[in-house]
Amino acid sequence: MIVGSAEPEALRPGAPVMHDFGSEPLSLAGASVLQLLCEVSGGTQALLPPALHPTLPGVVAWQVYDFPTSPWGPFRMAQTRIQCRSGTRPRGLLVSGVVTSAAAGEALTARWGFRLAPGEIDFLRGYDRVHASVRSPEGDALLAVGLQDPVMLPPGAVQFVSGVHPADTPSGFRLVQVDALHEVHRAERGDPVIDYFDAGAWGEDRMVPTYPISASICTADVTLRRLRFVCRPGEMSFTGTETVAAG
C-alpha cells in the first residue's frame, strides 16, 4: 500500500489558524465552477502526508469559483489541490488558494481552514470557451486555465471530492475535512487548456503538470457543511481521524 511520505510538519508553515470548529453551514448559490484535472510527473507520494494516499497516477486539480452572491458580496476563489485518498475515500489536499475578497477569505480561513492569499481572478465565459486567470496583488501570473468547445453533460457527471485542509486547530495541527456539496444545475465538459501554472507560487514547486485529463464548467449551488472530522496528518485515517462535531 502506498502512503504519503511528506513530513507533516512540512505542511505547517503558513497554515491557517482555526480557533474553533463550530461553523454553521454556508450556502453559496449560483456559482460558476471551472474545474481542471491534470496528471503530474513523478506522482504525488512525496507531496502528501502519511494520512493520505496518492492516486495512480498523481493528479493536480484546479478549481476556480465565481460566486455571484455571498454574505461578503460577489467574490472569486481559486484553489490548487492534489487528488488523493483518505483511507478509501477520494479527497483533494488543498495546497493553497487565492481569493478576491478579504472578508470572504478571512471567514473561509477561520471557519474551514482554507489557506488563501489575496489576488485577482478573471473569469471569462464565452460561447466556445471558458478561461480563468489568477494573479497576485502585484500582478504576477499564478494560473491561467480554461476549456474549449464545451459539450453538455448530465449534472451528475462532474465529480467534486471533499477537501482536506492542513490547519492549526484547537486539536493541534490537523487535516480538516471540508465537505463542499455541489448541487449542480448545469454541467459541461470541454478540452482542457493550461496556459500557465506557477507551482512554486502556490506553495509546492514539485508539482509538474504533464498530461491534462479533463476540464468542466458547472453552475452549482455550493454548500460548505459543518465540520465533522479532522485527521492527524502523521498517521492513516483509520487511526488518526477525530470527530469534531455531530454529523
Partner: peptide
C-alpha cells in the same frame, strides 16, 4: 480490507473525466 484499500487508490474514470 487490503484489497479494498488497494482498489480505492485507483483513479476511476468517473472521478477524473466527466462523461455519460
Amino acid at each position: 480490507g487490503n484489497f479494498g484499500l488497494l482498489n480505492s487508490h485507483l483513479l476511476f474514470t468517473r472521478e477524473a473525466y466527466p462523461t455519460r
